[in-house]
Amino acid sequence: MTVQTEERHASWLELFFDLVAVAGVAQLSHLLRGSTTWGDAGLYVVCFLAFWTAWMCFTVYGNVTGAAARTMPVLLAMAGLVFMSVSVHDLGKHAQVFAVAYLAVRSLASRVWEGRTSTRIVVEWPVVHAGVGVVPWFVSLWADAPGKYGLWALGLALDLLISLTVSGERLARKAASRVSRREPGARTAFAHLDLTHFGERLGLFTIIVLGEGVLTVTEAMAETPDWPAPLFWTVIAILALLAALWGAALYQGFAGIPYLRQTTWGPRSLLPVHCLTAGLLAALAAGLGDVVESLEHGEMAPGTRWLICGCVAAFTIIGAVSRATSQRWSRWDYLATAAGVAIPLAIGFFGAPLDPVRFLWLLVLAVALSLTRGPRRK
C-alpha cells in the first residue's frame, strides 16, 4: 500500500507576509520611473537586493518551520520591510530609516532560529547566520550619501560572496561552534529547505512582480486624460508581453526562473538567479509605465527604450542558461535565443522611430519564440 503525503503549500501567515512584497516592489520600481541615469539604476539595484534579502530571510524561516513558525517575529519583520518600502519614496531624506529597518530585520532573522534549549542552523541559506554582511550597514549610519550607498552595496556584496563561494555546511558548523561557545550545553541542529514549497514561494514573489507591471500600466492609463486607439493597442501589447514572461518564468519554469526544471539547481544557484530575474521584471514594470505615458507627448525616452530592451535580453539569456542546464535544449533554441537577444538589442539601437505598439509587439515576439516548446516537464 502506497502512502501519499499531502503536498505543502504557502500558509496564511506566509501569504500575509507577502503583502509587504507587494508594497516593496511597487515602491522599488518607482525608483526607475521617468529616470534615465546610471546613478538611479545603481541605487535601484542596491535597494532591491536589500529588500529581497530581508524578505528572503523570513521566507526561509517559514519554509523550514512550517506550521511551527512564530507569528510575532514574522509580523515584526513585516513592519521592518514596510519601513524599508516607505523610505524608498524619498531615499535622500529617509536613507537612515531604510538602513535601520534593514538592520532590525536582519538581526531579528538571525535570532529567530534560537530556542530556549537549541538552535537551528539553515544549511542552504547560511547568510542569515553570518553577521559580516551587516557590518557595512551599521557603519553606514554615520556616513553620508553617496558613501552610505556604497557601504550598503559592500554589505550586500559580502552576503552574495558568502552565499556563492562558502560551503553552507562549513558556515553551519561555524555558526554551531559560536552558539556552543556563547551558550555551553546548547544543542544545535542543521535545517534544510523544502525545495518544492520553496519554489512555490519564489514563484509567488515573481507573480507579485508581474502584478506590479499590470498595476503600473493601469495607473498610467488611468492618469491619461484622453484614450486614443493607440493607447488601447499599447496596453494590449503590454499585457501580451507580461503573459509571455509569465509563461516562460512560471508555466514553463520553476521558482520564477524561465525554463528551469525543479531538480536542476540547488538553493545556492537558485536564490541569486531568482533575485536577478525578479529585479529585471520589476525594472521592466517601471519602463512599461513610462511607455504608456510617452503616448501623451508622442516620444519614448531612449533610457526607457534601453531599460525595457535590456531587461528582455537579459531575461532571454537567463532562460537559455536554465534551459541548457536543465537538459531541455534543442536546435530550435539556438534560433529562439539568438532572436530573443538580437531583437531587443536591434530596437534598442535603432528603434527610436518605432511607435510603442510596434516596439512592444517585437518584444513579445522575442520572448514568445522560446515558448513554442510546450509546457514544462519536471
Rank of each mutant, 00 (worst) to 15 (best):
Met78Cys: 08
Val64Glu: 04
Ala130Cys: 12
Phe48Ser: 01
Ser107Thr: 15
Ala130Glu: 12
Ala101Tyr: 00
Cys47Met: 09
Val100Ile: 14
Asp144Met: 09
Trp125Asp: 02
Val127Lys: 01
Leu81Tyr: 01
Ser140Glu: 10
Trp142Ala: 15
Ala145Met: 15
Thr71Met: 11
His89Tyr: 15
Trp52Phe: 15
Ala143Lys: 05
Ala68Phe: 04
Asp90Ser: 13
Arg106Ile: 05
Arg111Ala: 14
Ala99Phe: 04
Ala69Asn: 08
Leu103Tyr: 04
Pro73Tyr: 02
Trp55Tyr: 10
Ser118Asn: 09
Gly80Ser: 07
Ala69Arg: 07
Met84His: 04
Ala130Thr: 11
Met84Ser: 04
Phe98Ala: 00
His89Leu: 15
Val105Met: 03
Arg70Lys: 14
Val97Asn: 03
Ala104Glu: 00
Ala104Lys: 00
Glu114Tyr: 07
Gly131Pro: 06
Asp144Gln: 14
Ser87Ala: 15
Ala50Ser: 15
Val100Lys: 01
Pro146Trp: 07
Val127Trp: 02
Thr117Glu: 10
Ala145Lys: 09
His94Phe: 14
Gly62His: 00
Asn63Asp: 12
Glu124Phe: 06
Leu108Gln: 06
Phe51Glu: 02
Phe48Cys: 05
Val97Tyr: 02
Thr59Ile: 04
Arg70Trp: 06
Thr53Ala: 15
Ser85Arg: 04
Arg111Thr: 10
Leu103Thr: 03
Val112Trp: 00
Leu91Ala: 03
His129Cys: 06
Val74Ser: 02
Val82Lys: 03
Asp144Lys: 08
Ala104Asp: 01
Trp142Pro: 03
Ser140Asn: 08
Leu141Val: 10
Ser140Ala: 15
Gln96Thr: 14
Thr65Cys: 14
Pro73Lys: 01
Ala67Ile: 10
Gly115Pro: 08
Val46Phe: 03
Val64His: 04
His89Asn: 11
Ala95Lys: 02
Ser140Tyr: 06
Val127Gln: 06
Phe48Pro: 00
Asp90Lys: 08
Leu49Cys: 12
Val132Phe: 12
Leu108Cys: 12
Ser110Val: 09
Gly62Ile: 00
Gly66His: 11
Phe48Ala: 05
Met56Tyr: 04
Phe48Ile: 07
Met78Leu: 10
Met84Trp: 05
Gly131Cys: 08
Trp142Lys: 12
Val100Glu: 01
Ala145Thr: 12
Gly92Gln: 09
Arg106Gly: 04
Val128Glu: 02
